[in-house]
Computed example of a mutant assay.
Amino acid sequence: MPLTQLIATHDLDLALELCQRTIVLSQGRVVYDGPTEKVMSDPDLLAEHALEPPLSYSRPYCQLEHDPA
């Protein structure tokens, strides 16, 4: 049975951990709707809407394109 949860948060680390899809609202308007990892790795979009990147993305080893061996 499919399960849908709605999580409203400013905790981007939590969103990155729990959510496959993210909708970003700014001044009551949808400014992004798509994969969570994509928006979290877009520093320009985050900065434009006063969001700080998740802490995990500020660590260099988390920015690898593949899992370390």
Rank of each mutant, 00 (worst) to 15 (best):
M1S: 11
M1T: 09
P2C: 01
P2Y: 02
L3C: 05
L3M: 10
L3N: 11
T4S: 11
Q5W: 06
L6Y: 09
I7R: 00
I7D: 04
A8G: 05
A8L: 12
T9A: 06
T9G: 04
H10L: 08
H10D: 10
H10P: 07
H10Q: 13
D11Q: 09
D11Y: 08
L12N: 07
L12E: 00
D13G: 08
D13T: 00
D13S: 00
D13H: 02
D13M: 00
A15S: 01
A15W: 03
L16K: 00
L16Q: 08
L18Y: 06
L18Q: 07
L18G: 00
C19L: 00
C19R: 01
Q20A: 10
Q20R: 12
Q20H: 12
Q20K: 11
R21Y: 04
R21N: 08
R21P: 03
T22Q: 00
T22Y: 03
T22F: 00
I23L: 09
I23A: 02
V24D: 07
L25H: 05
L25M: 15
S26N: 15
S26K: 09
S26P: 02
G28I: 06
G28C: 11
G28D: 08
V30E: 04
V31D: 11
Y32K: 02
D33N: 09
D33V: 01
D33M: 01
D33T: 03
G34K: 03
G34L: 06
P35F: 05
P35K: 11
P35G: 04
T36M: 02
T36S: 06
E37L: 12
E37S: 10
E37D: 14
K38S: 10
K38N: 09
V39R: 00
M40I: 03
M40T: 05
M40Q: 04
M40P: 02
D42C: 07
D42K: 02
P43L: 09
P43H: 10
D44W: 08
D44M: 12
L45D: 06
L46K: 09
A47F: 07
A47E: 12
E48M: 10
E48K: 14
E48D: 13
E48W: 04
H49C: 03
H49A: 04
A50V: 11
A50L: 14
A50F: 15
L51I: 13
L51A: 06
L51G: 02
E52C: 03
E52P: 02
P53R: 10
P53D: 04
P54W: 00
L55C: 01
S56L: 10
S56D: 07
Y57N: 10
Y57A: 09
S58P: 00
R59I: 13
R59M: 14
P60S: 09
P60E: 06
P60D: 07
P60L: 09
Y61W: 13
Y61T: 12
C62L: 13
C62S: 15
C62F: 15
Q63W: 08
Q63E: 15
Q63I: 11
L64N: 15
E65A: 15
E65M: 12
H66P: 02
D67T: 13
D67F: 14
P68F: 12
P68G: 13
P68L: 10
A69E: 12
